[in-house]
Design a protein around this nucleic acid. Structure first.
Length: 921
RNA sequence: GCUCAGGUGGUGGAAUAGGUAGACACGCAGGACUUAAAAUCCUGUGGGCAGAAAUGUCCGUACGGGUUCGAUUCCCGUCCCGAGCACCA
């Protein structure tokens, strides 16, 4: 009987679906295990072979865990709100909901063909009102809470109003915007508008006027992680800075917890490092400098991590956007400063990044007094100081900071070295090491002691305090787009009010045009009757990460209409045990989700502090492009080996008409009309294409579709081959040419169950010791491979075992049944089919994973390589139970020993049990 | 510039509490079956040298050193590729 993969795969996929084989129960005696994939954005292009890599790995793990007796939750859904569907809608007029629906059904078909063990009854879609109800609900909770730094958690905003009424805000230690201090009586005298304005500064979801990343082409603002090097991640359009009123999430309030809780997570170091970097904690001090513009004096606060270098401050620098610029610019300097500011303003973010080496700046005309040394120092303005970090003003220590050094050199400002023996004639000395000098009371101290000593002095003098700064900014939470969650917020007297929970979900209204309005308002402004109780509703929508921040919770209890997740479901599933996805979400989704989870944890809705216990980043699968070489100005193509003889143009050719780098000439002529008359110069009768590893993309003609692989080889081959390609976490190019080896293996495995005349012939004989040895070696290997996520080496182990069983003509049930269970996580369809043929009615998915027994694999004697001075000379078979001395004795009595040792004197014999015997002379 | 990960045949990659480097697979070459092809199977396959052959021998895990009886593995330095961060004071 032939191995008919397409029939088998269809049959079992239908069986799993109709039997609900992979449905997970929220009540079970079994231990739970939650395996999650990062859900996809259903793009119009469909899946390519790179997408399922992580899904296959997580599926193998899920299937393995089921066979190990766990109640496994392995769900899938769609991150369905987003820009591309809306861009497409603008171009074509097609409603994003319709294109999204089409894309989802295409994705689903593609996913189903690969044979994943998802519990589809728990599917979620972020664009579904019954789902985004809970996204909106979470937003309302954030709107309705503030962050108390004393108890380090979110508290209801009503408690805050209560405190204000009794004692004003002076004793409140909150994560908040700039608010002036007020007393209880002042608070009580404020009108409602004023009160709401103040409360807004405390909310965790708040509205603020901030400088945002504005992308004119997309017509929306973007979060920091959606911008890379001044361009939008989606679309690659330029991004500029713009002041706008936006919704923000106070992620920064959670910075310390996001940082310290990383410790307990089982994530890779590099990913944790990325998050630490993004959070960017730095410990230092705030210090007050007296500044004077000649007519009035002010206190200006700066932030520094190098308080020890205060004696080397030779000037101060303000960010161009700093509010101090206006105060400290003297009339004589006004014209120059204004010129400088307008020059800076004209630059885009992109140019500022590109020109970081160019030094620019202008003197404000004012002076500051160094509070420690009493020196009078000039105050400059320069774009190298960022307004968004610290206080937007710095004390410059050119001797020990490279940026200050470059600035000082450029404008001829003094440089005072503060470390004994350091050379600052060519560059600054930035290292935090050495002995202090020229530094008054700090002289003679090493830097490590001088930093705390300086801060202590500053605190004693009452001119500053210890301060921790984070680079993590609040997340901008509104987008001027249509295809996203509407905000359940309306405006009264210009102030935002939350709608009651009872209106949720607040559904997206229908509109007929997805472009912004003529007045530049978001598309939702076109909706008729977009009002609540007569008041206008917020017209921007939530960003992509809103819907993906808590989806892992919703899978636990997807049908619940009364809560995001019931307490019972949450306490059973708790958190994701294994999360597999791409590294591109390191500073976006994975920060926002952790924040979102911690917020819900503070409110008591979830029981775990962290959402994802273990996280694995699968590598990218790159494309392998093929090229043909056309002689310039002709339609003649030369094979790769001959291309250097001519002046040629390299042209990408569709990898689907190339096999093993050999071009299918007929297919090539048909591929595009201009190649119809192509002529070829061949090597040995073949046209050999050039190749390169590039990103898998349409424009490079190197996209390989998993459907094609499933048609030609079957899903089991695809699954095995994707794993066989290399380590999961490594990026690697897809190259279809190796797939035959895996396909051959499955055929061989299939044939193991049939006699020569094609009859199914599994017998009941007892297995031989050799068979048991091969089997148990495989059990041990596969188990440890899956547990350490080394799926690639198990595929090799399967091949070796099947080859050995073929050589032994194994056809015994006692061997082939456990073998089917082992293979079933990797190649589930073929294993199910053979399992059924061996007489089982139940799916193999819940068969018990075979128990590894060491006794079958350990040998009582061992072959020791014997080496002389580290060089292997002969092998000797010895009993395992021998002592070191007995082994030495036997080695010396071995006839080979005399042959190799000759006249030499033995210095020592090294015996590494079960590994090697080395004789040194 | 800083941080992290990596560099092994023609290719993808095995092997690290230091112990026979190149498992497994692709590709290639040769062979069997076939009128032929596909499919399948068998043999060989890191490089050099010696040999008719079995085999022997030297060199080989980016490069240069070190520790060790023994290093792909550990340590120091250099080079290269990849990823992330990048005026964060």
């Amino acid at each position: 009987m032939e191995y008919n993969f397409s029939e088998i795969e269809k049959k079992w996929q239908a069986y799993w679906a109709s039997h609900g084989t992979f449905r997970a129960d929220n009540i079970s005696d079994k231990p739970k295990y939650y395996v999650l994939d990062m859900f996809p954005y259903p793009s119009g292009a469909g899946l390519h072979v790179g997408h399922p890599l992580g899904y296959i790995a997580s599926d193998i793990y899920s299937r393995y865990k089921r066979q190990k007796g766990f109640n496994v939750l392995h769900p899938m859904g769609y991150d369905a709100f987003g820009l591309p569907a809306e861009q497409y809608a603008i171009q074509t007029g097609k409603h994003p909901a319709d294109t999204t629906e089409e894309n989802i059904s295409r994705y689903r078909k593609q996913l189903d063909r690969i044979g994943f063990s998802y519990d589809w009854s728990r599917e979620v879609r972020t664009c579904d009102p019954s789902y985004y109800k809970w996204t909106q609900w979470a937003f309302l909770q954030m709107f309705d809470h503030w962050y108390d730094k004393d108890s380090d958690r979110a508290l209801p905003i009503s408690t805050l109003a209560g405190i204000f009424e009794k004692s004003g805000n002076s004793r409140v230690n909150a994560a908040c915007g700039a608010v002036e201090t007020f007393s209880a009586s002042q608070w009580n005298s404020f009108d409602e508008k004023k009160k709401r304005e103040i409360l807004m500064q405390y909310r965790i979801a708040y509205q603020g006027e901030t400088s945002v990343n504005w992308c004119p082409q997309l017509g929306t603002v973007l979060a920091n992680d959606e911008v890379k090097e001044g361009y939008s991640v989606r679309g690659g359009f330029p991004v500029e800075q713009k002041k706008m009123k936006q919704w923000l999430l106070r992620v920064s309030a959670y910075a310390e917890r996001l940082l310290s809780d990383l410790e307990e997570l089982d994530w890779t170091d590099s990913l944790k490092e990325m998050q630490r970097n993004w959070i960017g904690k730095s410990c230092g001090a705030e210090m007050v400098f007296k500044v004077s513009n000649g007519t009035e004096e002010h206190d200006m606060t700066i932030f520094t991590t190098r308080a020890d270098t205060v004696f080397g401050v030779t000037f101060m620098v303000l960010a161009p956007e700093s509010e101090w610029v206006d105060i400290l610019t003297t009339p004589q300097q006004r014209a120059q400063v204004d010129d400088y500011l307008s020059m800076v303003k004209k630059k885009t973010e992109r140019e500022r990044i590109a020109e970081t080496k160019k030094i620019t700046g202008v003197f404000s005309g004012s002076y500051a007094i160094n509070p420690i040394s009493g020196n009078k120092i000039p105050v400059w303005i320069s774009e190298y100081v960022l307004s968004g970090y610290g206080t937007g003003a710095i004390m410059a220590v050119p001797a020990h900071d490279s940026r200050d050094y470059a600035f000082a050199r450029h404008f001829n400002l003094p440089i005072i070295p503060l470390i004994e023996g350091c050379d600052v004639s060519e560059s600054s000395f930035d290292a935090k090491e050495g002995i202090m000098c020229n530094s008054g009371f700090l002289n003679g101290m090493p830097v490590s002691e001088a930093i705390p000593a300086a801060i202590e002095k500053i605190e004693q003098m009452g001119i500053g305090r210890r301060k921790v700064n984070y680079r993590l900014r609040d997340a901008i939470f509104s987008r001027q787009r249509y295809w996203g969650e509407p905000f359940p917020v309306y405006f009264k007297d210009g102030e935002a009010y939350a709608m009651p929970e009872s209106v949720l979900p607040l559904e997206l209204p229908e509109i007929d045009n997805f472009l912004p309005t003529e007045t530049g308002e978001p598309p939702l402004a076109r909706a008729k009757s977009w009002a609540y109780d007569g008041y206008p509703i917020e017209t921007s929508t939530m960003p992509g990460f809103a819907g993906s921040s808590a989806y892992y919770l919703r899978y636990m209890d997807p049908g619940n209409g009364d809560a995001l997740v019931s307490r019972q479901a949450d306490e059973y599933w708790r958190s994701v045990d294994l999360y597999i996805g791409g590294t591109e979400h390191a500073t976006g989704h994975l920060i926002y989700s952790r924040f979102w989870n911690k917020f819900l944890y503070d409110l008591g809705y979830v029981c775990e502090k962290e959402p994802f216990r273990k996280l694995i980043n699968q590598g990218m699968i790159q494309g392998r492009s093929n090229f043909v070489y056309r002689i310039k100005n002709t339609n003649r193509f030369v094979s790769c080996g001959l291309k250097d003889k001519y002046d040629t143009t390299e042209i990408h050719v569709d990898v689907n008409i190339v096999e093993n780098d050999r071009l299918d000439l007929e297919a090539f002529r048909k591929w595009r009309p201009e190649f119809e008359t192509a002529e070829f110069e061949l090597e040995n009768g073949e046209y050999i294409c050039g190749w390169a590893v590039e990103k898998m993309s349409k424009s490079m003609y190197n996209v390989v579709n998993p459907d094609m692989i499933c048609d030609k080889y079957g899903a089991d081959t695809l699954r095995l081959y994707e794993m066989f390609l290399g380590p999961l976490e490594q990026s690697k190019p897809w190259d279809t040419k190796g797939i035959d080896g895996v396909a051959r293996f499955l055929k061989k495995y299939w044939r193991l169950h049939f006699s020569k005349d094609g009859k199914f012939s599994v017998n009941e004989d007892a297995p031989s010791p050799e068979e048991l040895k091969v089997l148990h070696r495989l059990i041990g290997k596969v188990q440890s491979d899956i547990e350490s996520f080394s799926f690639n080496t198990s595929v090799s182990a399967f091949m070796i075992a099947v080859n050995e069983f073929t050589d032994m003509h194994t056809s015994k049930r006692a061997v082939l049944e456990p073998l089917a269970i082992l293979i079933s996580s990797y190649a589930p369809h073929i294993a199910e089919e053979l399992w059924g043929m061996m007489g089982h009615d139940e799916s193999i998915a819940y068969a018990e994973f075979p128990v590894y027994e060491e006794k079958y694999t350990v040998e009582d004697s061992f072959e020791y390589p014997v080496s002389f001075n580290g060089k292997m000379r002969f092998k000797i078979r010895l009993s395992k139970s021998l002592s070191k001395e007995e082994i030495e004795k036997q080695v010396m009595e071995d006839p080979n020993f005399g042959r190799f040792i000759g006249e030499s004197k033995v210095k020592k014999i090294i015996v590494v049990p079960s590994k090697i015997i080395n004789i040194v002379f």
